[in-house]
Amino acid sequence: MNLKKRSTEKWLPNKWPKSSNLVKKWSIDQQAEFFALLANLLTIGFSLTAALDFIVQTNKRMRPQVNLIVTRLKSGNGFSESVRSLINIGAYHQLLISEKHGRLKDVLKELAKFDRLKIKQIKKIKSMMVYPLFLCLILFVLMIMIRLFVFPQIQELMPNIHQSTSLTRNFRLIKYFLIGIVLLTGISFVYWFTQSPIRKVQLLIKLPLIGKLFQNYVAYYLASNLATLLKSGLSVREISITLAEFDKGSLIYSLGAKLDAALTNGQSLTDVVDETQFVPDEIIKFLNSGDPITEMANAMTAYSSLMFEEMMLTTNKIIGFIQPSMFIVIGITIVGTYFQLLTPIYNGVKGMY
């Protein structure tokens, strides 16, 4: 209990800092630029305050946010607490751990690398989606034109074609389908926000196509944070107490609380893995290996790098799957449109004989 209190008092903020209404949160590319620039300045010998002052003087785009960080630092807040409202929660947790244990520069480099690769993958997806989405737009316009102009002309030439058939029926089915999608999406959102962080991850890793990607990301995220804690010399028990003191809505807090409860009740780490379903067995093997903490930290660092590479490979596979899937959907839609157009003509011609 004393260890838990001492650990909390040393480095965890008492509350979230309030963000100024005039200062916007960084986008992912701005966040990556800030992390990379700050890491470079720290590497060449700048102190943290000197590096931030240098950014204020030389980077107009970041000046409002960095001025806010400097103001919070002067008020006695730590760096991670000062930057918390400007970055995503995952990056904040990694900065919080690294700031406490003296690896801020290394973690900043890792975060910048991760964000830049994420931006690169997003741009690649967007570039691959432009052509298929343009075709979809043309196809949608074509279907509307057929509905508004072609079918009325066909009905004038062939009065025995019933308007309620074919395209009208299909448009009605499309309308019901879209209503169903909207209702299902609403129910899914309500269900999602009532689940715990651990349950959310359990659901995400079961999704087709992106489930494997998210599982790799969780493995990378956990391994990199544990590596930082192990390099500082913390034992497994101390790590569980540390993790259990994070923001209550975060995954890392939920895992820390579960790990702390398991160790308190005499359960093994394997039991925690079985309950969560997404913590990799390799992480537990490293923690249960009995090796010196330094060797465990090195193994965890190597494993986090491996999971990062796996995450990039999985992302590339998903990107390669997107465009062919879009073309298949477009092809099916084109064939369906032709059937909608030709079926009533065929029925009308057949009715003449």
Rank of each mutant, 00 (worst) to 15 (best):
P159I: 03
N160M: 12
N160K: 11
I161V: 10
I161G: 01
H162D: 15
Q163M: 14
Q163L: 12
S164T: 15
S164L: 13
T165K: 15
S166G: 15
S166H: 09
S166W: 04
L167V: 07
L167F: 03
R169E: 14
N170T: 13
N170D: 15
N170W: 12
F171Q: 14
F171R: 08
R172N: 15
R172G: 14
L173T: 10
I174Q: 12
I174F: 15
Y176N: 15
Y176L: 15
Y176F: 15
F177T: 11
G180C: 07
V182F: 14
V182I: 13
V182C: 06
V182W: 11
L183S: 11
L184Y: 14
L184P: 04
L184N: 10
G186R: 05
F189R: 12
F193L: 08
Q195N: 08
S196C: 03
S196G: 06
P197H: 03
R199L: 10
R199H: 11
K200E: 06
V201L: 06
Q202D: 05
Q202G: 03
Q202Y: 07
L203V: 08
L204V: 06
L204I: 08
K206E: 13
K206F: 08
L207M: 12
L207P: 02
P208F: 06
L209Y: 13
L209V: 15
L209P: 09
L209I: 15
G211Q: 07
G211S: 04
G211E: 05
K212F: 14
L213R: 00
F214S: 04
F214R: 02
F214V: 04
Q215V: 03
Q215M: 09
N216D: 12
A219C: 09
Y220T: 03
Y220H: 12
Y221H: 05
L222A: 01
L222R: 00
L222M: 10
A223S: 10
A223R: 00
S224A: 10
S224E: 02
S224H: 02
N225K: 08
L226C: 04
L226V: 10
L226P: 00
A227Q: 09
T228H: 03
T228V: 14
L229R: 00
L229S: 00
L229V: 00
K231G: 10
S232N: 04
S232T: 05
S232G: 07
S235C: 13
V236Y: 05
V236E: 07
R237C: 08
R237K: 15
E238I: 07
I239T: 05
I239F: 05
S240F: 03
S240L: 06
S240K: 01
S240A: 11
I241P: 00
I241K: 01
I241N: 02
I241G: 01
T242V: 10
L243I: 07
L243K: 01
A244M: 02
A244F: 01
E245D: 07
E245H: 07
F246Y: 02
D247N: 06
D247Q: 06
G249L: 03
G249R: 05
G249A: 02
S250V: 06
S250E: 11
S250Q: 10
